[in-house]
Amino acid sequence: MNWTWLHRFGSPPYFYRFAGRWAPWFLGISIVLLLAGLYGGLVMAPVDYYQSEVYRIIYVHVPSAYLALMSYTWMALAAAIGLIWRIKVCHAIAAGCAPAGASFTAVSLITGMIWGEPTWGTWWIWDPRLVSQLFVLFFFLGYMALRSSIEDRDRADRASAVLAIVGLVNVPIVHYSVDWWNSLHQAPTLMRSDGPSMPMAMLWPLLVMIGAYTFYFVAIMLMRARAEVLRRERGGTWLREELARAA
């Protein structure tokens, strides 16, 4: 197998151009999917027998939580690759995952609280699922704080990568927390061994929203990583050419 195509991504000019070309497409596809998912979730999906209309929060809550865990996983993997093979673009990608990941971890917690009040009777409970997700938020914030607190970029890359990798242990804990412990949070609806436990009319808008969030995540990550690549560049002809073209 020829791996040279993969190696090109390690070169900042190649990555910068590639990301600039593809980020708008990912964002555009995510907006189309988002509109379809919102219409499906808010208008077309039937009312739930047990939870009435409030269950519709699922269409923003689950995709946010999914995006939080997905961006953490990608952040840790990119940081690990950057750490092991010393590829700077990978650290830029890892840094690009963190802000979106942190904000959607917060969104998943807040929308969960809004959902919890009418269905559980409480905004917050020290439940395994909720606490482990709160830890995801702390790892994201810690990662960003650590990066911004170290002046030397290479040292910041290495230290924050170690933190990201350590926090990866938490990701499966979040996912399996509802199975391992007695949790108020419901068990998974989608990723079950016996298939999704939702009727198709309710399920498809959720899957479309998850698709929208996936494309959205890639778009944001590429945009952020581009800015990070620019910040690291100290000159070079490619940069001169790119900036002349962007002006």
Partner: peptide, 19 residues
Amino acid sequence: MKGYGIYVWPAYVIALGAL
């Protein structure tokens, strides 16, 4: 939303606002 609008809409505003 059958009385749940005060929960559903803020959740959507927060999520879409974050996007």
